[in-house]
Design a protein around this nucleic acid. Structure first.
Length: 790
DNA sequence: GTTGGCGTCGTTTTT
DNA sequence: CGACGCCAAC
């Protein structure tokens, strides 16, 4: 291949990247390792197509998984094409998708791209083009309603589990009939019964759930060949980012689109496939060369992100996986500091060690700022304690994900109102807010309305209420008072619909707050109410970004984007704050300093995947993703014991630590977390701690040990901390919580009931009523004990 | 119809 | 430990 390295779009790229850019025609598979300049290559390739190959931007499509990735790509492509000034101007002046813009490429997520198509063509499938988009919560409410109607108890059958099976079916493009054919158990049979009802209800509400958005688009392509042909003709050059995360439906969707011109460029890394639980099939990327035999494959193996120590260590972790392609990343970067493996006393000390280290680095080096640090974890629940520590240390932080803004009650309420205003058929939204603020419309009234709706062929509830006014003397036992109340609600909605024709999105919300009395309802004098009101104000400011659009369209566009927004999109890397997020969320990001917390068996790898080899491999890929976020320093932490689901647990250090080469690491653990026999098994809490304190010290692997710092210093002095402290003289742990005294009756999780006969420091001597167990000594701070009434 | 108290339940990752 | 659902009392 001749290298035109003097070309401005090529001269900053390495040879493999250039090759990827220059292969403009036909299918291309770019296997891009972590930190290998994947986005850079993709954006340069798109810019090259347009600027050099004179492909019309209108014919270019690039699909990503997150809005953030799409936004980033859009920004970078426009920068390359037009320079920063014009790019910024363009980005600011266009709101919403570029689907209908003649001079810009379409760069968006799978979902937003499909929504654009469906807004235009869904009527061909018997839906209205102004459909609503249901999120998980909406779907759950709907499913619960269905199950109640079907007389299925939501106690015995979990609506979430049913929905997740339906989701799986949709990801595999199975219609209710097809799903029913392969139902193999009583549970899947139940799912097979509920799936068609769920679809019918969605359709009555003129709503699609997330999976429908993809599946309906594929259905549209199948049933309307002309639509597909038009789109094939339009999108002659297609790129897909993170191809390893596509599910079957997305795979089919893209293949249909690319079928005619076959100019399909997919980019991905099977080592970073972490969404199989959501239907992603890594097989799509592994099979690309089979699906497109003429494909050109380019491997990007030079890593520009991490030090060689981080790169080598993460490589030895991923190398343990059996199912993966072979590649070897390399770097020009220096070795860098060793990976720090730290054992903390408990989850609070873990947070303390992280906070102290952040402060230490900030003092030691002038350059880093808070935004250079990320704290990653497996589950959102872990963020809480770390957050508290950050607060105590006065370190500015930002939690991405977790308690989600768009899932807050007040936000969902306002959005439900807005959805109903735009789409009066949306009865799920109606049910959510018809009695918020309280209007004395309770379950009795609603049941009556729902019955009427069913008898009239599932007419939307709002129409039922409207008709109540006209058909005087309705036969259902709704007294006049109720009819009046309901009439007021209908009036409110119709007033708001008029307002929607006069004001842009933010104006509609402001009016709504007054008209519906929702503002009064929130501002009840409590501080909590004020916070909620602030959240609503925040929503208004988001909505005001759509104020340039004409009334009506403004609100509709706002709702559409909000429905597909994720919390990652709220993450602003210009914020000067330490970032806390899950490793899933962190994919695609990079930070100079990364802490991974909670490296314990049962947490990471998660307990649910411990016994399933495929899932364990996915956990290991997640570990790989987490580690490769780090540029300079990487810290891996685990706690000796941890408060988990209300109990104190002692988990052994994560098995992934054992995959690390000792010479690349330093540890403060007196035992060796890297060695097989240094691992204590999960045991009764007390035994775990004793094993840790008196257990065999394993020195054989050559792991470099750093001086053990006094863990207590990680708790700030000024704040009294009730957590157990190490009693140096006895070598035992003395607990302050909870306080037991002689004579207390207690219940132990496994030993059953007993009586405290002696208290020495934190050690309780308990006589259990079960003679097989007898008298035991337990550490009060960690034993799973509860006081019970005498 | 609304409120609050109490008990039970389940605890992953998310476009 | 926390969210949520159910039931009993207002």
């Amino acid at each position: 291949m001749t290298l035109k390295s003097d070309h401005p779009l090529l001269n900053s790229l390495n040879p493999s990247q250039q090759e990827a850019v220059l292969t403009t025609e036909g299918p291309v598979l770019i296997l891009a390792g972590a930190g290998s300049g994947k986005t850079r290559t993709l954006t340069h390739r798109i810019a090259y197509l347009i600027a050099e190959k004179k492909v019309s931007p209108f014919s270019v499509l690039a699909v990503t998984f997150t809005n953030k990735a799409a936004g980033e790509m859009k920004k970078r492509v426009l920068n390359l094409l037009y320079g920063q000034q014009k790019a910024d101007f363009l980005l600011n002046s266009i709101k919403g998708p570029t689907f209908n813009h003649p001079d810009l490429p379409v760069i968006g997520t799978f979902h937003s791209f499909c929504v654009q198509i469906l807004r235009k063509y869904l009527h061909l499938l018997g839906f209205e083009n102004q459909f609503a988009i249901y999120d998980d919560t909406d779907s759950q409410i709907l499913m619960k309603t269905i199950m109640r109607e079907q007389g299925l108890s939501t106690d015995r059958l979990n609506p979430k589990a049913i929905l997740s099976h339906i989701s799986g079916a949709k990801n595999a493009l199975l219609t209710p009939t097809e799903y029913a054919k392969q139902a193999y158990s009583t549970f899947t049979q139940t799912v097979a019964d509920l799936y068609p009802i769920y679809q019918k209800k969605l359709s009555q509400n003129q709503a699609l759930d997330f999976d429908d958005i993809i599946m309906k688009t594929v259905e549209l392509f199948e049933k309307e060949p002309q639509v597909l042909a038009d789109l094939q003709e339009r999108f002659q050059y297609i790129s897909v980012d993170e191809y390893q995360d596509t599910n079957h439906a997305q795979f089919i969707l893209i293949n249909k689109l690319a079928h005619k011109y076959r100019n399909l460029c997919v980019v991905g890394d099977d080592w970073q496939s972490i969404y199989s639980w959501r239907g992603a099939t890594m097989q799509n990327i592994l099979d690309f060369e089979k699906d497109y035999p003429e494909a050109k494959t380019v491997k990007l193996e030079q890593n520009y992100r991490s030090t060689s120590i981080i790169l080598d260590a993460s490589h030895s972790v991923i190398a343990k996986n059996k199912k993966r392609t072979d590649k070897k990343l390399w770097t020009n970067k220096e070795k860098g500091p060793k990976i720090q493996i730290w054992q903390a006393l408990d989850e609070r000390a873990e947070g303390g060690m992280i906070a102290a280290e952040i402060q230490k680095i900030l003092l030691q080096y002038e350059a880093p700022s808070y935004r250079d640090f990320a704290i990653l974890y497996r589950t959102n629940a872990q963020s809480r304690v770390i957050e508290e520590t950050m607060l105590r240390y006065g370190i500015p932080y930002r939690v991405v994900g977790g308690v989600k803004f768009y899932e807050r009650k007040e936000i969902k309420d306002i959005l439900a109102y807005l959805k109903l205003i735009v789409n009066p058929a949306d009865s799920v939204s109606l049910l959510r807010i018809i009695n918020i603020p309280p209007r004395k419309i309770g379950s009795k009234t609603l049941e009556a309305l729902q019955t009427m709706s069913r008898h009239q062929g599932d007419v939307p509830l709002l129409s039922i209420i409207q008709n109540l006014q006209t058909m005087a003397g309705n036969k259902i036992e709704l007294n006049e008072g109720k009819t009046v109340t309901l009439g007021q609600f209908v009036k409110l909605i119709s007033v708001m619909q008029k307002i929607n024709h006069q004001y842009p999105a933010s104006g509609v919300i402001k009016n709504l707050l007054e008209e519906s009395k929702y503002k009064e309802f929130l501002l009840d004098g409590s501080t909590e109410g004020e916070t909620r009101y602030e959240n609503v104000q925040e929503l208004i400011s988001v909505a005001s970004k759509y104020d340039k659009l004409e009334p009506g369209l403004s609100l509709a566009t706002f709702l559409e984007e909000v429905a597909l927004i994720s919390d990652l999109d709220q993450f602003d890397d210009r914020d000067n704050a330490v970032v806390l997020m899950t490793m899933h969320m962190a994919k695609g990001l990079e930070f100079p300093n990364v802490f991974i917390a909670g490296l314990e068996e049962g947490i990471f790898p998660h307990s649910r995947s411990l016994f399933e080899p495929n899932e364990l491999e996915e956990e290991r890929r997640l570990m790989y993703v987490g580690m490769t976020r780090a540029m300079e320093r990487l810290y891996l932490l685990y706690a000796e014991r941890r408060l988990l689901y209300g109990d104190i647990k002692c988990n052994s250090p994560s098995q992934f630590l054992r995959d690390l080469p000792a010479e690349l690491c330093e540890s403060n653990d007196p035992k060796n977390p890297l060695a097989e026999d240094g691992i204590i098994m999960e045991t009764e809490a007390k035994e775990g701690i004793l094993a840790n304190y008196f257990g065999k010290i394993n020195q054989q692997s050559g792991l470099k040990r750093i001086p053990v710092e006094n863990e207590i210093e990680f708790y700030p002095d000024e704040i009294p901390d009730p957590v157990a402290l190490v009693d140096q003289t006895e070598g035992f742990l003395t607990g302050q919580i909870p306080n037991f005294s002689q004579g207390d009756r207690v219940r132990h999780r496994t030993f059953g009931e007993g009586v405290v006969v002696k208290v020495t420091g934190g050690i309780l001597t308990i006589a259990f009523s079960n003679p097989q167990i007898g008298v035991k000594k337990l550490a009060s701070s960690v034993a799973p004990l509860k006081k019970i009434k005498n």
